[in-house]
Design a protein around this nucleic acid. Structure first.
Lengths: 117, 117
DNA sequence: CGGATAGTTAAGCATGTTCTTAACTATTAC
DNA sequence: GTAATAGTTAAGAACATGCTTAACTATCCG
């Protein structure tokens, strides 16, 4: 399971539309810092700061060769975040199943009680 | 698809460990504000503020009857956030498939070329 | 070498977040 | 009706976030 601090950083990173956009584009393939920055309406240092947040969360990694820094997504961290939702949903659905069984059982008891009268 | 501002609010809400804890417990069943607050090491107003963040995101809804406010999770919003990851993963996996096909194709071409010599 | 390209660092400002305490309202129980 | 319970509101302190501009470094190209 993912430890709490990382989930903090991952969800914090994804809470910003600029960073989600960067993640979505990196999902289509690796990009340099300049390529990432091109469609964004902000300064290059601002893009760098977003990239740092993404890297701190583990969602994105980058490597510099020559003067170009290539950025790529880290699917494992994405999947671990996704699995937090899956785990919640599993518990939620199990609870609803139990609730459903309880209600059916209750109804059965009521029918029996009516027949006895 | 979920609109951007809501995703901002949902991920922002989940970026805090206290709020994730509240969501996890509400996933096991509805709770009053006091019940939600009980295990948390902070003042009641602070819990209220976290609850407001969760409600603003749509992840949690609440209803007051008498002097008790009962809070429940909104699974649909959870699922829509989860689906953001699923969508990213789908695109990512499709890309890797294409990349795999390309590499296999390339290898096949190389083998043919070798045979011709 | 010298200029263009790609990225980086630092400082500062405006705004947002997370908590606190104090004071308050509405509901229920005796 | 009085007191306990459950929640609410407001104000403020402390820190975090998301930008900016200015100045800088490292690499590549001719």
């Amino acid at each position: 399971m993912l430890n709490y601090p990382q989930l903090d950083l991952v969800f914090q990173a994804l809470a910003d539309p600029t960073r989600r956009d960067m993640v979505e584009r990196l999902g289509r393939g690796p990009q340099s810092v300049s390529e990432l920055a091109a469609p964004l309406d902000m300064s290059l240092p601002a893009v760098l700061q977003h990239l740092q947040v993404l890297e701190a969360s583990g969602l994105v990694s980058s490597e510099k060769t020559g003067r170009v820094r290539m950025c790529r997504i880290e699917p494992k961290v994405m999947e671990t975040a996704e699995s937090w939702f899956a785990k919640r949903r599993e518990i939620w659905e199990r609870r609803l199943d139990r609730l459903g069984e309880f209600l059916v059982e209750e109804e059965t008891q009521r029918r029996k009680a009516r027949r006895k009268r």
